[in-house]
Amino acid sequence: MWIVAIVVIVGLLFYIFYIQRQIRLMNIQLSQRLHEQYTQPISVELVNKEINQLVANINRILIESQKSRSYIKREEKYYKEMISNISHDFRTPLTAIKGYQQMLLKEPLTEKQLAKLGVAQKHVGRLEQLLATFFEYSYLHSNEDQPKKDRINISNIVFEEIAGAFAQFEQQGIAVTLPNYEPLIINSDEEMLLRIVQNLVRNSIMHAQGDVTIKMWLEEEHAYICFQNPIDENIQLNPNQLFDRFYTTDNSRRKNTGLGLSIVKLLTEKLGGNVAAKIENGMIEFLVCLKKNL
C-alpha cells in the first residue's frame, strides 16, 4: 500500500509542477503581448477543463482588446486628418475676411466706420488665436511622436520669448523681472519647451494683474521654470483645476479658453516632468519641473 501511496504522491507533485510550468508559460505569453506587440493566442498543454476554459476566455478578451486598439488607432488617424481639414476650412474664410478688412482700410472711411472696422479686426484676430490654440492642443493630444533630445539653453528660450512679447507686456502695463543671465543647459525637446514657455508668456499677458517675475534654476536631476504674478482677488481660482481643459471662471470666460495651460501640462508630461500652480498672498505661481536629461 505504501508503494501505491508514494506513486500517488509523486504523481500529484508532478501534476502540480506541470500546472505551475503551464501557468508560468501563460504569464510569459501575456507579458509578450503587453510589451513586445506579440499577437499569438495564449496556449497551454493541459488536459484540464477549468484551466482550458480560463485560457479560452483570456484569448477572447485579448482578441476584443486587439480589435479595440485597432479601432482606436483608426479613429486617431481619422481625428488627425479631420483636425487638419477643419483647420484649413477655418483659415480660408478667415484669410478672406482679413483681406477684405485690409481693402476697406484703403477706402475713404469716417472715424466711426474706422472704429467699427478696428473692432472687427480685433475680434478676427482673437478668433484666429483661439482657433490656433484649439488646433495646437488637439494635435498635441493625439500626436504620439516621441520627444527629440537636443542640447538646449533654457535661458535663451525664455529671454527670446519675453523680448518678442515686450510690446504686448508694455501695452498691458506689465513689467517683467528676469534673473541675471546664466546659461541653463538641459537635454530635452526644444520645440516642446518653446511651446511651454510661449503658453506661459501668453497666459501672463492675458491674466497678470501686475508685474511678472520669472525664475529659472537647475538642481541635481531637474530644471525649473517659475512664473509669478499678482491676480485679481475678486476672481476665485482653483489651482488644482487650472490645467484642466476648458477650465475658466465667469469673469475671465470672455478671453480665455482654458487650453493654454492644458498645453503646458500636456507637453511637460511628454517631457517626463510636471507642472503645478500655487496661489498665496494675492500671487499666483506656475512651476514647471523638467528632467535635465530626457
Rank of each mutant, 00 (worst) to 15 (best):
E191I: 09
E233I: 08
N281W: 06
L184I: 05
R69G: 08
Q40P: 07
I225E: 03
L34I: 14
L261Y: 05
Y139V: 10
R245A: 03
N143S: 13
V7E: 07
L184H: 04
L194F: 09
L140F: 03
K215Q: 15
T249A: 00
E50Q: 12
L200A: 03
E45P: 00
K255I: 11
R202D: 12
F227H: 15
Y78P: 00
T213V: 12
I196L: 08
Q53T: 10
R195H: 10
L218E: 02
L194W: 05
I162R: 01
Q121M: 14
I279V: 03
K265W: 00
A5C: 09
E160G: 07
S65C: 02
N234T: 08
F286T: 01
S138I: 03
E81P: 10
E280P: 08
N199F: 13
V119Y: 04
D211V: 07
P230M: 04
M103V: 09
Q129T: 08
L94Q: 12
R33T: 03
L200T: 02
G173H: 04
V158C: 06
Q241R: 15
M192C: 02
Q236F: 01
I185F: 05
M216Q: 12
S204R: 01
L130C: 09
V275Q: 05
I6P: 00
L193Q: 04
T92P: 00
K73C: 03
I61Q: 13
L178R: 06
K73Y: 10
K122Y: 05
F227Y: 15
A167P: 03
Y38P: 00
H123K: 12
D244R: 04
T268W: 05
Q66Y: 14
D211I: 06
K122C: 01
R126E: 15
E161W: 06
Q32E: 11
N27T: 10
I214W: 03
I231N: 00
